[in-house]
Design a protein around this nucleic acid. Sequence first.
DNA 1: TGTGAAATTTGACATACATCAATGCGCGTC
DNA 2: GACGCGCATTGATGTATGTCAAATTTCACA
Lengths: 229, 229
Amino acid sequence: MPLIQQHIEQIRQCTLFASLSDDELKQLVNHGQVVELNAGQTIFSQSEPCHHFYLVQRGMIKLYRLSVDGTEKVMDLAAPNQLFAEAVMFAGNYPLHAAAIEPSTVFAFDCKHFMALLKDNNALSFSLMTSMSHCLNGMINEIDRLTLHSGTQRLAEYLLEQVPEGVMQSSRIRLLVPKLVIASRLGIQPETFSRIMARLRSDGMIETHNDTILLKDLCALRCLAACPG
Amino acid sequence: MPLIQQHIEQIRQCTLFASLSDDELKQLVNHGQVVELNAGQTIFSQSEPCHHFYLVQRGMIKLYRLSVDGTEKVMDLAAPNQLFAEAVMFAGNYPLHAAAIEPSTVFAFDCKHFMALLKDNNALSFSLMTSMSHCLNGMINEIDRLTLHSGTQRLAEYLLEQVPEGVMQSSRIRLLVPKLVIASRLGIQPETFSRIMARLRSDGMIETHNDTILLKDLCALRCLAACPG
DNA sequence: TGTGAAATTTGACATACATCAATGCGCGTC
DNA sequence: GACGCGCATTGATGTATGTCAAATTTCACA
């Protein structure tokens, strides 16, 4: 699949690559490839050796673990313009599975080549470490939520995350993935997800219409997310 | 507090510092300091600016979060010879609290100075990234356990972690921290911890004597940890 | 060695959430 | 436009774990 200029522009936007010269970036891109994915298609599997990291151009990617009995836990979702697996380059093997949940396009960067760039470009190392640091922070927050917050709180938090910056009173949002997937992401069952939504609805905090949700009272939702109960 | 040779030897053992010359290491150590801590004493608090990272020399350190109502969640425990907070240098602020749970000695490294070393020593950057990678892996496993494993499974896993390599059938271990703390570490209540232990005891898998625990059937415990139920 | 506070254990009870099951809805496909 | 298949919703029920409370043990410190 040929790389069009548009792709390169998008890649340039990543802060991880900010310190690369035009030439270095072109080199990096030349060692990578565009990958088209069908809905449900796997990108890599847990414990597989890690040869690539990825940038989402279009679609949605789920990063997940499987338990022995086949239960799936979605650890994170990667939307367009987001990198994933860039922080596991030094681990050798992927720590989880990645699959597209809808038709998607990703760009695959070559780990070996990127590592070579890292060797000569300390600023790039710093960028990657900053990226890893953010990743780590997110994980700690995740554990915090799972252990210190209830399902209702986590769902409220998730809804509020979808609200654009600066919106104060109410906001209309869309769920970009099936509720099934969000439930797994939040560590609850789909049935529980549905029931919590029903409660928020009957409490007058939200109105729902399929994947479109009107958050009628952001204040109340924020309170719900913050306070135990 | 003066640094004795013994301290420097211990610091040298850290793989993070493997690429440092004797001189660089001495420089690093000269910019740091030994800190003596009483039981319960705080080392740093969440959201505080990050100026140091640490190596435990003696004692035990808990890394934890607090919820709004004061509930404590122990995210990790650092034993002697373990580094902590080395992966948050690039974040700017500590993402959690750190405190000694018994009289402890830690060595505090200066982040600024270490960052300066990083600039000129790419191998050091690689070491740090490897360290961060391991940290990340641990976090993913942690989320996996919290969402996909039951309290009983997590406790069994914890007990098995205390068993030295190569032991096959049975093993005598010691809990190095109060059960209260382990319970928080595992994301369960102390009462639940106690009850699970009682069940393992009545199932003939373990015998207990305060903080000393005899794991009578490692196979059964491993099965319990792996299989749901 | 005694004393008090903290940790642990045990019991009774409450509850959030999971599970099982059935129905309904939406959506893509032919 | 009809069919079929996931996904979503709702109800009934089960259960692991939390909460509250009290008794008991452990341990640090005087």
